[in-house]
């Protein structure tokens, strides 16, 4: 990625893009999604593609613009799913932004603020998907993108415990889960659920073949529900596992689980309140992982109680084990 570039420490957020051809503060540019390249006068223009999803109509238009402005005719898919147009001359910023705006394509942002959310395909078309991650990413982009924070603030949405969107490495991550419930009369004792369960949370009774379920081992992936031929395993509830304080980079930190089965409609509150806590407690340049370490997870959980309250208890044990 491009983070070797000097961070903007001056808190100037919005860069004027019109008529800026002559005087340009290169530090300011990064906040507007323009990233300086090694090559003289050359910048990468990072587009805003929440969840990495684009309509083909838009993609066609973007490719025309990229073809016109990239001096080397190349684009790059960023690690956070957004399309980057490489080798753009900074003197063309006004023009390229105007052209992108015309097709409804916004430029992303870097620096100390809420970044473009990433997401897997989610339940719309991925058979493993349990939550509509794309819908959530779109919501976060509309509601929170660009909100100033002490340092960068990355969010992501995974639709299932395979966690392709790496919620464990996010400042705030949401991973889809489903709680299975078993209906004995519909069960034929075929043992497929025990075969399908990769976590050994279901074993078959040696006599009847019926499942013996261990919720402590269950990671709530829903494989049993999907494998069951007679619908004896059903979904009781869907939701998100919420993880906070993860990061990658030079010193990766694994996020801690702070909530299970948070329903879709509570996700905006969870983000809102997390940003509140982060802004109130974080020093400039500190990721939320560092703040949690310095101030303590308990302080965060207390602040989050109105949102997590009813859904958190299952994880109090886990967080205590993690040395809160």
């Amino acid at each position: 990625m491009t983070d070797h570039f000097v961070e903007d420490k001056t808190n100037k957020v919005n860069v004027k893009l019109e008529g800026m051809a002559e005087k340009v503060n290169f530090n300011d540019l990064k906040t507007g999604g323009f990233i300086k390249q090694r090559q003289k006068d050359m910048f990468t223009v990072r587009l805003r593609c929440p969840g990495g999803r684009l309509s083909t109509d838009k993609l066609v238009e973007i490719s025309k613009i990229a073809h016109k402005y990239s001096k080397k005719s190349v684009v790059h898919f960023s690690f956070r799913q957004s399309l980057e147009i490489l080798y753009v001359d900074y003197k063309e910023f006004g023009n390229i932004v105007a052209e992108l705006e015309k097709i409804g394509q916004k430029v992303a942002s870097c620096g100390p603020r809420v970044r473009v959310p990433t997401a897997c395909g989610g339940c719309e078309y991925n058979p493993n998907g349990l939550t509509d991650t794309q819908k959530m990413a779109d919501m976060v982009d509309k509601k929170f993108f660009g909100t100033p924070t002490p340092h960068k603030f990355k969010t992501s949405f995974s639709g299932c415990p395979i966690d392709c969107a790496r919620t464990k490495e996010m400042d705030l991550g949401f991973q889809g889960v489903v709680e299975p419930v078993w209906d004995e009369p519909s069960c034929t004792g075929c043992t497929i659920c025990a075969e399908a369960c990769k976590e050994d949370a279901i074993v078959s009774d040696p006599d009847t073949g019926k499942p013996i379920f261990d919720p402590k081992k269950c990671i709530f992936c829903g494989d049993c529900i999907r494998a069951c031929p007679t619908e004896a395993w059903k979904a009781k509830r869907y939701g998100h596992i919420v993880r906070v304080g993860g990061k990658h980079g030079r010193h990766p930190v694994e996020a801690i689980e702070v909530c299970a089965f948070l329903p879709d409609e509570k996700v905006p509150d969870a983000i809102q309140k997390s940003i509140e806590w982060y802004n109130a407690n974080g020093k400039r340049g500190e990721r939320i992982a560092t703040v949690l370490k310095r101030v303590g997870v308990r302080s965060y959980l207390d602040h989050m109680a109105p949102v997590f309250g009813a859904v958190a208890p299952a994880f109090a044990e886990t967080t205590d084990k993690q040395g809160v």
Partner: peptide
């Protein structure tokens, strides 16, 4: 047996 039955169902 983990994959084929659920795909068949789907």
């Amino acid at each position: 047996v983990q994959n084929v039955p659920k795909s068949v169902k789907e």
